[in-house]
Computed example of a mutant assay.
Amino acid sequence: MKINENTSLEGQRVVLVPYNAEHVPRYHEWMKSPELQQLTASEPLTLEQEYDMQKSWREDDDKCTFIILDKQRWTDTSVEEEQCMVGDVNIFLTDPTDPSLAELEIMIAEPSYRGKGIGKEVTRMMMCYGVTKLGVKKFQAKIGLDNQVSIAMFKKLDFQEVSVCKVFKEVTLEMTVDESVRTRLLEDMADMKERDYRQTCSDRREPVS
């Protein structure tokens, strides 16, 4: 999605940056994992196909993707950005007739970062971005029935289970963004900073005197 191609979002423990070509090799390595393929219902792609996918996601009007970075590692300018990658988070505008409905998807690809509340922070950050920048009024999350950790996380964020599909073995959870939800979300994310991504990258590359 063009809207976020020069946007970075800085939270307490993570930084969200646009999914760029330089992130593809690491992302491609992640997606060789049978576990991640199962959790994300994804088919393995060649590296070339992964580059094509990255480009299409950048251009598509209905997909908004950020790469999740470890903020502590990222603030060390000697560490390359690709080495800070933890996972990714997406908003899909799935209904052409209703642009206020969005599907939310998050992947913490690095096992050492799971179970530490990072997924919860990232989800809140992405919801805040979706509400304020994309006009989202209802979020959906479709999760495999065997991914109990993700189901529990979304329920802790007050998503409600609305249906179970036995054929696809997934559960659908939803949250409607009314005024109280919006207010709470903006309050919770008051410390989140939106920055110019190109400027941030430039600052990281400049030697510290």
Rank of each mutant, 00 (worst) to 15 (best):
K32M: 06
D203Q: 14
M125C: 07
A109I: 00
S112K: 14
D98G: 02
I118L: 14
M127L: 05
M85W: 01
S202W: 12
Y113Q: 06
M85I: 08
V17W: 07
E50L: 03
E82S: 01
M85D: 00
M85P: 00
P25S: 02
K63E: 14
E59P: 06
E43L: 12
A141R: 11
G115M: 09
V79G: 04
M31P: 02
F139R: 06
E43A: 09
S163K: 13
L39R: 09
V17Q: 00
D76T: 11
Y129F: 15
C128Y: 13
E161L: 03
D52W: 09
F168L: 06
K166N: 08
S42A: 05
E29T: 04
M1Y: 13
E35A: 10
D98S: 09
S209H: 14
M189S: 03
A141P: 12
W74Y: 15
E110L: 01
V89W: 11
S100E: 13
V208F: 13
T200L: 14
W57G: 01
G11L: 03
P18F: 03
T77E: 07
V14I: 11
S100L: 06
D98Q: 13
M85F: 00
L9Y: 11
D52Y: 14
S202P: 06
K138N: 07
F66W: 15
N6Q: 07
V86Y: 00
R198Y: 13
G130A: 10
R182D: 12
F139L: 01
T46R: 01
D60T: 09
N4D: 12
T200N: 08
D98P: 02
K137G: 14
V86R: 05
Q148T: 11
L93P: 02
T7F: 07
M125R: 02
F168N: 09
P99K: 09
D70G: 04
W30D: 00
L47G: 02
T183R: 08
K193C: 03
S209D: 12
K155L: 05
N90C: 09
L186N: 05
L101V: 15
L145N: 15
M126G: 04
Q38W: 11
C84L: 01
Y51H: 09
E103K: 08
G115H: 13
Q199V: 11
E50R: 05
E110T: 02
Q38E: 15
T200R: 13
G87A: 01
R182P: 06
M31D: 05
Q148G: 10
Q54F: 03
T176K: 11
E103D: 15
